[in-house]
Design a binder for these strands. Sequence first.
DNA 1: GTCTATAAGGGGATAGAC
DNA 2: GTCTATCCCCTTATAGAC
Lengths: 217, 217
Amino acid sequence: MSNLPDKSVNNKPRRQSRIREAHAAAILRAAEDLFSRNGYNGTALEAIADHANMSKQNLLYYFSSKELLYHRVLENVLDIWVDKMALLDQEGEDPAEMLRNYIRRKVELSRSNPNASKVFAIEIINGAPHLKDYLKERLLPVLEADVQLVRTCIEAGRMDPIDPYHLFFLIWSSTQTYADFSSQIELSLGKDELEANDFQTATDFLTHVIIKGIGLK
Amino acid sequence: MSNLPDKSVNNKPRRQSRIREAHAAAILRAAEDLFSRNGYNGTALEAIADHANMSKQNLLYYFSSKELLYHRVLENVLDIWVDKMALLDQEGEDPAEMLRNYIRRKVELSRSNPNASKVFAIEIINGAPHLKDYLKERLLPVLEADVQLVRTCIEAGRMDPIDPYHLFFLIWSSTQTYADFSSQIELSLGKDELEANDFQTATDFLTHVIIKGIGLK
DNA sequence: GTCTATAAGGGGATAGAC
DNA sequence: GTCTATCCCCTTATAGAC
């Protein structure tokens, strides 16, 4: 195993796969960016290729079809998403602190990955045709666990007897809006672009209203 | 003026304009429906025409281009929207009651016009290229008035000193999610379709959390 | 891995008969 | 107002040379 690198003097296989990885990653980034701005049908492969500094034909060498490329983009997005969706990460911690962290992580995700959020949003709005099964497998288990945790808090009298599912719908929508609806928010605030400051205000506002609103003690 | 109807014995002009109105309305409904499911570029004129029971060529007789048709759909949507966005409708009323009504109206709109909400959402996510100017003219004045009203409440010590803009971002996103993200919500609740019951739960939950969360007295 | 060339189909829009 | 026919561009995808 240790002698394998020596076998190919010019390191061809390794260098090639490095090129492949780099180009594939560049294509995925470009695709996410353009799909988020113009949707699936509104984005031509040639535009993605241009954005990734290569020819359309070369792009098709890396991803054999547009559908496949879109699938890969969606999977990337959802993987990032679900990882941040578990409340339970830190067992034994204060419920209020858990929710605060959850909200903070979600707003942070809207700031760092707005394009991913938008691709995801458009897919959901259109009825999640490519994503429904994957959502069932990946999202539902995490959601059920989180809902159960909230129920435990309610039964212990630590928060108001609200509907746990709707609590998560509220958190998802109110945090993701800073990515998905940024153009409307920018317009409303009279800014060309949202700044770190705005995301901090959003986080503070949402944690205040939600924690207080559900009567979390 | 009163003798004009008698001039045309067979009422041709009147009947023709009735057909025109009916067909135009059918096209607009079909277009809203299909744009909400597949976006602008994902929707073929032929599909809209089929949905409205006419040929593509005939559709183009009523709306001379796809762009124009899309504009009309967007205008319809926004007009419905902005009308419901004014908090101030009932001057002198209790602020808590005003906000409750506002939230109730917005959830009701998500229930009655989900397709309109989705068309609007996709347009905003894509940066509102067709809608920015119209939003500035129609939305901003209403928002500014609403924000001012909230500020007055805060200065009177009737609610917590929260950021008024973010309060509206919260209400917009959390109510519209029941239209825009309905596929995800249905999946989460294990239902094929949201029922009146679910919208009532949503309204009750949101009014509880938001009114309590901003410390409205 | 990257290029040129091209097949194959979809979709917006127009022309003109009825 | 509605129909048939047609134009033409755009886009996905493949074939094959280098």
